[in-house]
Design a binder for these strands. Sequence first.
DNA 1: CGCTGCTTTGAACAACTTCAACTTCTGTGG
DNA 2: CCACAGAAGTTGAAGTTGTTCAAAGCAGCG
Lengths: 260, 260
Amino acid sequence: MKDTGGGDKVVSLKGLKVACRACSLVQLCLPVGVSREDVERLDAIIRRRRPLRRGEYLYRAGDRFHAVHVVRSGSVKSCAPTDEGHEQVTGFHLPGELVGLDAIHVGEHRCGAVALETTSVCEVPFGQLETLSAQVPGLQQQLHRLMSREVLRDHEHLLMLGKKGAEERLATFLVSVSNSFQERGYSPTEFRLSMSRGDIGNYLGLAVETVSRLFTRLQTLGCIEVERKLIRIADPERLRALAGVRPCEPVAQPRHGNGS
Amino acid sequence: MKDTGGGDKVVSLKGLKVACRACSLVQLCLPVGVSREDVERLDAIIRRRRPLRRGEYLYRAGDRFHAVHVVRSGSVKSCAPTDEGHEQVTGFHLPGELVGLDAIHVGEHRCGAVALETTSVCEVPFGQLETLSAQVPGLQQQLHRLMSREVLRDHEHLLMLGKKGAEERLATFLVSVSNSFQERGYSPTEFRLSMSRGDIGNYLGLAVETVSRLFTRLQTLGCIEVERKLIRIADPERLRALAGVRPCEPVAQPRHGNGS
DNA sequence: CGCTGCTTTGAACAACTTCAACTTCTGTGG
DNA sequence: CCACAGAAGTTGAAGTTGTTCAAAGCAGCG
């Protein structure tokens, strides 16, 4: 029914109207393990929103929860507000990731989500997603895997804040970003950080100044090359070592197949 | 000795064989919002395990994941191992709580779970739970809510480790424990902590010595009375204030944060 | 061109950790 | 029942690590 192949009648909408099956993220997103026909059904409930510009909120803490969002392009941070007006950045989200999963419990967002750059997202009404996932076992499983992954990540983050020193934290962060880019088919050794030093510091539980100093220190050590937001990882092994990861095991493997 | 009803033949199993409908935790656990008949179906897939003694593992990091567990009585901690052999306590779990949700993603436990005292749990084979929850909307929703709550809690924990000072952390911890006990119908002002100071310190990202000093300081301040593992909260308001919570709102209330 | 906001750098300071010694509790076996 | 050993908890003093404060350097933008 949909025409993704030839006729570009409405050029301006093409960017928004990519069907799930035509989306480059099918491998990371909800459709994993879902049959072609069922992806169409999923497709039918998804709403594509207009792209957000840097700094715009996807939703704010306190907003009623009605849908989960998937980052399609760009990137997003989520922040949990403190009572005192501070914020904790709880995560950065790259294309293919679900955001807003913490809101299901109370039916209201407890974290805000902000675009770090021009970003487009898919909106998936959660009630409909639940209904559909009850009918499509593969979708149900993938939804559960993604929710579980969120928990898993938070635990890794917790471990970082609870047990690691400053240098170890930044190194871990960079390794993890590098892995994320690799998963998405980009260079794992050269990338642009969309978030500010402030965001990184907040995420890592460090002062901005500390983050800045660490960047220069890692550069001095020859692990990385920094130019503003551009990062080149010069010595991945070394960086991994600083991150406190044993040489053999990558930091966070998303796949379940393994050979140990 | 409770008598659950009619003809139970094997007395020694009676303690283990409390049906969901007769369980005091129905209000907190999976059956929330599930009809009487459907609870029976849930009941049918649940396996009650023999009680664990203090220090016994429910499962270990690396174990294959096949079921989620619900704490029925006692308490459990989960710990994420570091590569260096350290551990981060990621949570304490009281009756009615699901443990093992982080394992769904990779099909393998990444955290271990240890009984903090004599503890009994229900084992819910996850495959069957998924199948059933596809047929019982209420169950599906509750499962999602519980998974989401896990995320939410981790975010609060993250905020604590990222933004709060030592005193604030311990105060927050105590307030949260107090709330948990209250939810379960116990006294919110007088309770026994089943975990060691070491566990608390680990959980809060603090050294044992710091935790110990803080307990004495809070006692000196008149907020609490400490006697070994027994805690009496003498001044709940004060404690809440130290935890960094505004007087009017209990520890986890919706708030409209403002962007910065 | 001169804002404004982000980043970097230096120096003093504070918070928490580490080390070390000591006390109290718990459980075990004589 | 008591004694003893090991674990857990407490307390003090010294030591680190990262924070805070202050100021200067840079990029983007109207």
